[in-house]
Design a protein around this nucleic acid. Structure first.
Lengths: 209, 209
DNA sequence: TAAAAATTCAAACAATTGTTTGAATTTATC
DNA sequence: GATAAATTCAAACAATTGTTTGAATTTTTA
């Protein structure tokens, strides 16, 4: 399918709505209104509401895959540096596309749309393979511990970061950060998250910075 | 509201359906059929579909709160023992009520039902207060580090465990555990999760077992 | 610029939604 | 065992859903 500017416009508005109302509760009329197009345009451009969701996942996960691949190709980095970059990049990506990662969270639970689930599985395999490679490299040079549970480790990273998406306001309240601006809070949260996940990874992998 | 056996029956079937299809995609007719009652009974017993969801949260989170409170009351335990029990109990609870925690995940994203959100916030505050107390106790006796980010720590626990709910099959596949039985896999996963979260908490809190 | 293709639109489509109705049946109360 | 209350049920309710239609408009092509 050829993606035009119009596609992007509709996808991006749908993304917002799916994230705030949920996929099922978002009507095609909601999306059309938000995107400023006629109701029939969604079917005309995407075929159906479901295929619009699939197009959204295709689009977002394509760019994600590209960004991951560029990390792997950087050969000059040490295993420990690679791990840190993977963490930084993941947290940047979630912060950048918060709405999408919220949708992802729900879609994984529902586990219904086969196209979406296939895309998710592929991405996870790419991730696991990438990390596994880095870890094995680090194990050969005796920087990392033996017997690392890669998927468990990844689950902690994605779980912590995506869970923070829904715990954010609560985190802010508990730490008395209601006074500071939204953007400053978001920035600080990203810094804290990166530090936190890296600290965990260090403990799991056994290296010292 | 007085909860009868019939209420429980409907709530429990609704829980299953909400977890597998999502709240919005689950129809009142689905629930009535699954529970073996007439369609009108859901309105008759709960008032509406939305209030049924609220009743589900009320019910499940009441029992959760009770179980948490009993942990706090055990005075003879050391801070480190308390932390370990909190982790064990949390993972047991999620394993026991997987469907409910899946619904919880989605409802937190949607953030729509105010009654549900209030219940969630209350529970989170109870949790944060409980952990904070234990951590402060451990800090006084110099067993735990200073400057612990409690909410961040909790987010890692809940994030890891609930994310594993949707990563489970993938975890199984990656670790070549497709041959073993479902119950055995679930048991092993619980053991691994407990070990994993405790290891992370040790690193974050700074104690050694 | 004329013909063809692509896009936009209001209107209508059938299907499904949560909820209510009011009569029938069961259970509880005295 | 008669009266009252609670429960069950099939049917109907109005509203909303995703999608399609076919004519009107715009854009592209030649």
């Amino acid at each position: 399918m050829v993606i035009t500017e119009k596609h992007i416009q509709i996808i991006s508005k749908a993304e917002e709505l799916f994230a705030t109302k949920g996929y099922e509760a978002t009507t095609v009329r909601d999306i059309a209104d938000a995107a400023g197009v006629n109701l029939a345009m969604i079917s005309y451009y995407f075929g159906s509401k479901e295929k619009l969701l699939e197009a959204l996942f295709q689009e977002r996960m394509n760019t994600t895959k590209h960004r991951i691949e560029t990390i792997v190709k950087t050969e000059t980095l040490s295993p420990f540096q690679k791990i840190e970059i993977i963490v930084d990049e993941y947290i940047n990506r979630v912060a950048e596309k918060q709405a999408f990662y919220k949708i992802m969270l729900c879609e994984q639970v529902i586990n219904k749309n086969t196209v979406v689930m296939k895309l998710l599985k592929d991405l996870k395999l790419v991730y696991a393979a990438l990390i596994s490679g880095v870890i094995e490299e680090g194990q050969r040079t005796r920087v990392f511990k033996k017997d690392i549970d890669v998927v468990m480790m990844l689950t902690t990273m994605t779980g912590t970061v995506t869970n923070m998406l829904v715990n954010k306001e609560y985190y802010r309240e508990f730490n008395n950060q209601k006074k500071i601006s939204n953007t400053l809070f978001e920035e600080q949260l990203q810094v804290n998250l990166k530090k936190h996940v890296k600290q965990i990874f260090k403990a799991l992998l056994g290296y010292e910075s």
